[in-house]
């Protein structure tokens, strides 16, 4: 390899960890928001989707305010666990989480809405618990949409730049993700290095989309063709 591959491994680690948490949080939120009516629901929905329309710098600023040494969460983490978020890869993972959550949330909501309620009702008439209805009917039938959301969230996590730069900074071999490596290589006039990382990140994106399309076709053979 012409260059140290650590930015790619760091990007994959950050995106994988943030996607792992995005998966569970978005499913819990989508389930809650699609099934329950409560005061302030529209406001919560707007807050979840807000990162889609905010500039990355605003998200980065918000994260520094929250997770900085004097921020409400940052100071608690430092006092209780001696753990810092700012200028670490964890900060990059949190930035990825915040920007990819709304994408995944939207996909999961759409996937749940596509599941015909008749199937869930049939299952209920057979006496099975709500958890089993979700686990064996709703989730598997929504899986193609959830999978597409996961890949989008992962891709967004890998590509995150602005908020990551603000909270994690650019520290080679510590917080240097692929987008940061591209930007700073370009800034330094090293076009060859920037082009290398552009090709690497594009290949990862193409592979992810190809894989999603393959899986969607495979699952569509059985799902949705009653």
């Amino acid at each position: 390899m012409p260059y140290d591959m650590s930015p790619l491994f760091l990007s994959l680690k950050v995106a994988a960890i943030s996607t792992f948490f995005v998966f569970f949080v978005s499913i819990a939120l989508a389930r809650l928001m699609s099934r329950r009516e409560f005061v302030g629901k529209s406001l919560i929905d707007a807050i979840i989707l807000l990162p889609l329309v905010l500039p990355p710098t605003v998200i980065g600023f918000g994260l520094i305010v929250l997770f900085g040494a004097n921020g409400p969460i940052g100071s608690l983490l430092e006092d209780w666990f001696g753990f810092r978020v700012v200028f670490t890869w964890v900060g990059a993972a949190i930035a990825s989480f915040v920007v990819s959550l709304p994408l995944m949330y939207q996909s999961v909501m759409a996937a749940f809405e596509k599941v015909d309620p008749r199937w869930e009702n049939v299952a209920r008439t057979m006496g099975v618990s709500e958890w089993r209805v979700f686990r064996t009917i709703t989730f598997p039938l929504a899986w193609p949409g959830i999978l597409a959301g996961l890949i989008m969230a992962f891709a967004r996590g890998i590509g995150e730049f602005g908020a990551t730069l603000m909270i994690a900074g650019y520290i080679p071999n510590v917080t240097e993700t692929v987008p940061l490596a591209i930007y700073f290589a370009y800034e330094a006039g090293n076009m060859e290095k920037a082009a290398f990382w552009v090709i690497v990140i594009s290949a990862v994106g193409v592979a992810a989309i190809t894989w999603v399309n393959y899986w969607r076709k495979k699952t569509a053979i059985r799902i949705g063709r009653e």
Partner: peptide, 30 residues
């Protein structure tokens, strides 16, 4: 009373078979 507790056998107009489960899994689901 919850649907689950009513012990109702219901054949829906358009069958509503679970598309991702085999016929055996459909029949034995409950």
């Amino acid at each position: 009373m919850k649907i689950q507790q009513r012990k109702v056998g219901y054949l829906f107009q358009d069958y509503a078979l679970f598309p991702h489960l085999s016929i055996e899994e459909n029949i034995l689901y409950g």
